[in-house]
């Protein structure tokens, strides 16, 4: 029994030595990446953070439209085409939002509460016009850090929002 134990220990020592010898080149190669392994996983890239901000902003804009339509059903027919285009924007933005599996992304922030109902239909249209202009301006601020195709999507959405703002201004004048 004692002999068998001694033999097992000797075998274990030999195995450890053999394995250690085999691992030496690997350890040497991997030594420079060990600190990388110890680092926390990388966070979201700037372009993904920008995309998430754009998604949140688009959701907020959609929420504002829904809020206004609920408060002023008479405006629904006029506003639904714009709302539908925003839903298209959101779908395209979301389709590009791919979080790498090794990254833990915090959940998208909930859109901020929609603005308080405006005092009149005209005021509600003005509220939407301002929201569209602000959204278009924000999209332009996202251009500098975005990859080319993403920048083009932001610019196209901004152009769409700019046309909405002009159309809403005209509707607001008519409503007055």
């Amino acid at each position: 029994m004692r002999e068998r134990l001694a033999a097992t220990r000797a075998l274990s020592r030999r195995r450890v030595l053999a394995v250690s010898t085999m691992m030496l080149p690997l350890a040497a190669t991997a030594s420079c990446s060990v600190p990388d392994l110890l680092r926390p996983p990388p966070g979201l890239s700037a372009s993904v953070r920008t995309l998430r901000a754009s998604v949140t902003a688009e959701q907020a804009l959609i929420g504002t439209y829904q809020h206004v339509i609920a408060a002023y059903p008479a405006l629904a027919a006029m506003l639904r085409p714009f709302l539908a285009q925003h839903e298209d924007h959101l779908a395209q933005l979301k389709s590009r939002l791919i979080i790498p599996p090794h990254v833990t992304a915090p959940p998208l922030p909930a859109p901020s509460a929609a603005a308080a109902p405006a005092g009149s239909a005209r005021a509600a249209l003005s509220l939407l016009e301002r929201a569209e202009r602000a959204a278009a301006a924000s999209q332009l601020e996202r251009l500098s850090t975005a990859p080319p195709a993403q920048a083009q999507l932001y610019a196209s959405i901004a152009a769409s929002e700019a046309t909405h703002a002009v159309a809403l201004a005209a509707l607001s004048q008519k409503a007055g």
Binding site: Q85, D88, Q92, S95, L153, S156, A159, H164
Partner: peptide
């Protein structure tokens, strides 16, 4: 108005 002025349909992701 248009949803995506300037962007060709090929630049848009279907089902997105």
């Amino acid at each position: 108005t248009m949803a995506f002025p300037g962007l060709p349909a090929s630049a848009l992701r279907s089902g997105g």
